[in-house]
Simulated scan of single mutants.
Amino acid sequence: MPSVHVQQIPETGADLEAAERDIRDPGRGEVRVRVEACGVCHSDVLSAQLAASYPIVPGHEIAGVIDAVGDGVDAWAPGQRVGVGWYGGIDGTCPACRAGDFIDCANLRTPGLAYDGGYADAVVVPVEALAAIPDALSAVDAAPLMCAGVTTFNALRRSPARAGDLVAVLGVGGLGHLGVQFAARMGYETVAIARGADKESAARELGAHHYIDSTATDVSERLQALGGATVVLSTVTNSAAMAATIGGLGPRGQLVVLGVDQASIDVAPFALVSQTRSVAGHPSGTSKDSEDTLRFAALTGIRPVVETMPMADAAKAWQRVLAGHARFRIVLENA
């Protein structure tokens, strides 16, 4: 059994530590992926709190190459470039799965929570977790698209918005900077909303047609002046900021919530009943959704804005993300 270098959480609540671990051969319906890059997501912190067992290796924005396949794996072969994201496997038997709603599986398996993730030289994953990476995308570019990318892309394409509609992206950070790119490339009149005038230049470079500084103006009033948003895609973790956009929705407009805050979204029922507005949550997407995201990004030139760090510096990268010091995305690379 080969050994691999990993960055692991040894026990609940502990910090990341470097370790060398044995890695098994893939079993039936599994593949082993040699990790080339792994994005650092704020949700990785859940590995220290909610993992199925310890020690656990975090990381659910994985890009690499298959180096071994288990029995029963016919559609994938060693040498293929693949990504693995938040969607890391399902039970196949819960009501959601039986209805074909796989992302809402009651026992969804996520790398770094259900089994070891991508802060490692290699990882063993269920075959249903795999998404093919197009040749046009590097591993570093593909990794963040496996979570931040598919979450924003899938939310937009499944929203009520149609080409030409006004779509606002709340937040221009790790998720939001991808949301702005996807919205613009999908043909929406795109509004970026963020705190401060200093983010306007970057937002417009990403493709935003309009910019709203939420510290300088009433967001809802500004959206209504632009015609009312069909969709507000919220990528922030601030419930008050989310609530401040609801009045800017047009008829049958929808606030789509991606970022998670523990506080409630404060909204008066009349604000929803009036104009038939709604608030909806959206998870990421299946491995097929991730594959669609990668192909769309390759086709349209969308790329995450990343800072790369060696895998050995995973603890430093994690602390930077948790402290809010990462402007967009950090990606860990194996040498």
Rank of each mutant, 00 (worst) to 15 (best):
V331E: 00
Y115R: 08
F102Y: 14
K288D: 10
A120L: 04
A241M: 11
G179Y: 08
I103K: 10
G112V: 00
Q262M: 10
A161W: 12
D292K: 07
I193T: 11
R98C: 01
E189V: 10
P160F: 12
A326Q: 13
D141Q: 12
T235N: 02
E291R: 11
I62F: 07
V231Y: 07
V57E: 01
P111H: 05
A136M: 03
Y87Q: 12
F296S: 01
V35T: 04
G247T: 07
A208T: 00
V123M: 03
M242D: 15
E189L: 04
L299K: 15
V65R: 15
A132W: 03
V140A: 11
M186D: 05
T93E: 14
V82R: 04
I62Y: 07
I193G: 06
P2Q: 10
Q262I: 01
A315K: 14
V191W: 08
D44L: 13
A77G: 08
S278T: 09
L332K: 01
A208K: 00
D25H: 09
H282C: 13
L255C: 09
V321C: 03
R157Y: 02
S3F: 03
G259L: 07
C38E: 01
P304I: 00
Q224S: 14
G112T: 00
Y211V: 08
P144G: 00
I265G: 12
K316S: 06
T93Q: 13
A14K: 15
A184V: 00
P310K: 09
G118F: 04
Q80Y: 05
H282A: 11
G171R: 11
G301M: 06
D25A: 12
I66Q: 02
